[in-house]
Design a protein around this nucleic acid. Structure first.
Lengths: 343, 343
DNA sequence: GCAGGCTTTCAAAGCGCTTTGGTGGATTGA
DNA sequence: TCAATCCACCAAAGCGCTTTGAAAGCCTGC
């Protein structure tokens, strides 16, 4: 059933039917109801492509996942972000397009997305240092919101939603230092990514403030898998002077650390302290059990929701000033931290 | 830059430019090259909406996530599936649309997707028993592939890709029985879902074969979160007669079981045996470490890839007979299983 | 030298919608 | 009663592409 058929059925022009359906005032209440009823009865739904062609609006947004960050799509953090965003999309009747772009020619990919005209705006994932995509999207003139930030050298006139990564990791590190730890391992995410750079900076800043020299061996940077946590802990603990505490960039890495500990017969919070960053992942609740992790917590689902909101806002009104949202993480005290063991 | 502008620039008709770009034979090699060059130089990319309107093809597929399965989007299993599928999409230059539909009016949602005309086909996730969506999509006439199956009462003429869930869980249960276990807990997924029903059947069938009565208390059904594994194990083990073995539907549930064990000071493979189903999740490799889980293994990423392939096939040629792919799981022996402890 | 057949190009219709710019008829005010 | 206003509706253009049907130009071969 299309507009033409429906209007023929009703003995009305396409114009009138279209207006009736879209709530324009120049239609009598009587016909509006008649049209609405018929549309419902015959399951009439406007063809989005045609609608998009005519209006220039697609009612869809794109999420572009660079393949360069290895497999960001499969990152549970990404998944929870998407879930948050799609709450807004469902509500606003927007579609979500997922595009995985190979890193070979990212610029071309974004240009393509823009000229294909299949989305009204995009969310930029996994910003790196001085991310070229920002300038690119600005020049193309496509509305976008960045999940995270790029560093400050780039023109700041873009919308972003970020967590205060530096502050969170600074606090966590300081918390460990206050407990007497001096050898603190950092299992960071990929340090090509902006968030990881900031976390590293926070960690470093707390060490500096306490006058503790940092040990390059204790700082690792990888994709945040369970295995990464496991392998790193195993490597750390077969060393002469293992760290007495570890800061892990994700609960998933933390799970790997825990597995290594149980294999090595170390008790978390006693033999080894652990603080994780808790994104509030739906499948990995860091609840109030005896084994709760000490954590910096900030909901990535909420971040997704906020990003989507900002994007909707920008699409609706492109001239609105670009907003920035910086979320602070809470510090949750669990059972995985304790005073540094005496040597 | 659009077709009109481009053809004006080249002093050619839109027809010729379009044909040149789409590889039609009735264009001289000379002009084809001239057109191709100009298109590249001016970053001309056809507008998908217009192309879609004209051809009836969108070059996009839809993944519809029922919200009824609580939050399937955030299920890491889903995520890995998507990653596999998008490999094919990237290769075939297809877009992926993600739609989260509230379970209130699923039928309407699918109809809507069909008439909106924004996708050429869909992948059906999380089929339940006697899933109404199958009949619906068949009647609408939209190409689709089901990840999983619905039970056999439904007309079988549809394409699906599934893992042999029954067989896998039957083998795993038998493996435990052979080790002397008789009280075997089952931490199943949501038993509204087809896959969970089959797993349950496999479990039951092995018990029956061994003449072991099943204990309703030992069978649980929930969303496969880490917490579910943890809580269930805690509940089991504060009982008079706890199970000596557990079968968990996902590595994530298994991780929760392990956490509970370390909290309860139980050694996996000695005090409690555990077999998980391992979907081969990218962020949770069940590698060859000392703590490797005994598992039934089948790559969900591969399943995603295969689903996408079948869908492409069907879109290209709707009259092709519907294919079914049934993947067998391997049984991997790790360190989390051992003989049943003597009472 | 010209009908017939190729090759290469084009104008125009159409995909399903929105939107512009009317039009005809009822209603109002003097 | 007639011009001025409104109201409710409509025909047609246009969004950017593909595709049909036709035509122009160039070879053939008799």
């Amino acid at each position: 059933m299309n507009l033409k058929e429906l209007s023929a059925l009703l003995n009305l022009s396409q114009t009138t039917v279209s207006r009736a359906l879209n709530g324009y005032p120049e239609v009598s209440e009587a016909t509006r109801e008649r049209v609405g009823k018929a549309a419902r009865e015959h399951n009439y739904i406007p063809n989005t492509r045609a609608q998009g062609l005519a209006t220039g609006r697609t009612h869809a947004v794109g999420h572009v996942i660079p393949l360069s960050t290895k497999h960001e799509v499969v990152n549970p953090v990404f998944t929870d972000f998407i879930a948050g965003a799609s709450e807004i999309y469902a509500q606003e009747n927007y579609d979500m397009h997922l595009t995985v772009v190979p890193d070979t020619n990212e610029e071309a990919a974004y240009r393509k997305i823009a000229s294909k005209g299949s989305v009204d705006g995009v969310i930029v994932h996994g910003p790196v240092k001085n991310d070229p995509r920002i300038k690119l999207l600005q020049s193309i003139g496509m509305p976008f919101v960045v999940h995270g930030r790029s560093n400050t050298e780039v023109d700041q006139d873009y919308a972003w939603v970020d967590m205060n990564n530096k502050r969170a990791f600074e606090r966590a590190t300081k918390f460990l230092i206050d407990l007497g730890h001096t050898r603190i391992g950092l299992l960071n995410g990929l340090e090509s990514m902006d968030f990881a750079i900031r976390r590293r900076a926070g960690y470093q800043s707390a060490l500096d403030a306490a006058g503790i020299a940092s040990d390059a061996y204790l700082c690792r940077s990888e994709e945040m898998t369970e295995d990464y946590g496991y392998e790193s802990t195993m490597a750390f603990c077969t060393r002469d002077t293992p760290p007495t505490a570890i800061l892990a960039s994700s609960i998933i890495v933390g799970i790997g650390v825990r597995r290594a500990c149980s294999e090595l017969n170390l008790t978390l919070g006693k033999d080894l302290s652990l603080i994780i960053h808790d994104d509030g992942l739906s499948y990995f609740r860091n609840g109030a059990a005896a084994s709760q992790y000490t954590a910096t917590r900030s909901s990535v689902r909420q971040a997704g929701l906020t990003c989507a909101e900002l994007l909707m806002e920008q699409i609706a009104n492109p001239d609105v000033p670009k907003r920035h949202v910086l979320m602070e993480a809470e510090l949750i005290i669990g059972s995985t931290t304790g005073p540094a063991p005496r040597p």
